[in-house]
Amino acid sequence: MSPERLSLPGEQYLAQRHVLTYIEDAVSQLLVNKEEVCQYGIARFFTEYFTSVHQGTHVLFREINFIQATPHNRASFLRNFWKCFRTIGKNGDLLTVKEYHCLLQMLCPDFPLDLTQKAARIVLMDDAMDCLMSFSDFLFAFQIQFYYSEFLESAAAIYQDLLTGKNPNTVVVPTSSSGQHRQRSTLSECSLQDGVDAPLFHQCLESLCERYKQSCPPPALIGEVLSSVQRLTFYGFLMVLSKHQGINKAIGALPERGKLLEDTTMDKTLENLVAQMSENSVSSPATGPLTVQLRALPCISSPRKPLQHRPRTDLESDGSTEETDSSEN
């Protein structure tokens, strides 16, 4: 019981839980499917609509505006994406940005390319955008980018301001600010000194979190990430966020990284299928599906490791902050 919700004014309670968003959407869906709904029963239509919202299947094949409308929709979309395409991770396939974008468009036809690209920038640390990425690397980077996209937009702007020595929030800038100017001009050196002062960045993000309330990563976890380093680049920051278990848990859409490719029920049915088919194959010649199943079998029993998709050359290219400008488009 959270008694807070009982004392809220009615409108605030409804807004906080996005009840009206779903009711409006339910009505517009009803109008689209008018004829069938009338035969079928309106109460039953609503039952199914709200059940599918509860289960998270309601965002499948919907337009991007609706998918982004509520945190629950975003989490549901992430979960669907993971569930639909985890076999890619299982097979260890590496894909490019464009290919991941095609997968996203299968679930949401008007999915914007720039969101996919932004997620890929996190994985590739804003460098060499045509590189191949493993499923789990992409998925966790995509999760951060997709779920917190507005927050990250603002954070990127703040980062840019800090980098150029501007003072974004009338925060008292420490004496090191003059040093940032110098670093900005010598970016090509790519030293570890790149990026901005972490405590200062943290300070700015704290006030940002207050503005975003529920649609930002838990402030305590941001603090944890930022207090462990002195300086950091924006993509370095996003990379750590995307790998942070606590943030993954706070979003609640995906399992932890180690369990990403586990699916005991599906594995069991697969194994049963394989067993059944190999029994049948004694009498009938091997068919298409059978060979596919057999190919999948070694993957099921072998321990899965996320593939190291590329050598850690990222560290050198960390500082290519020039590129971060493009993330604001």
Binding site: R17, V19, A43, T47, F50, V53
Partner: peptide, 18 residues
């Protein structure tokens, strides 16, 4: 009723209604 999860609540509500 101010349920914690209004969506699940509504699903249940309409099911009963149907």
């Amino acid at each position: 009723a101010r349920p914690e999860e209004p969506v699940a609540f509504l699903a249940d509500y309409f099911e009963k209604l149907a």
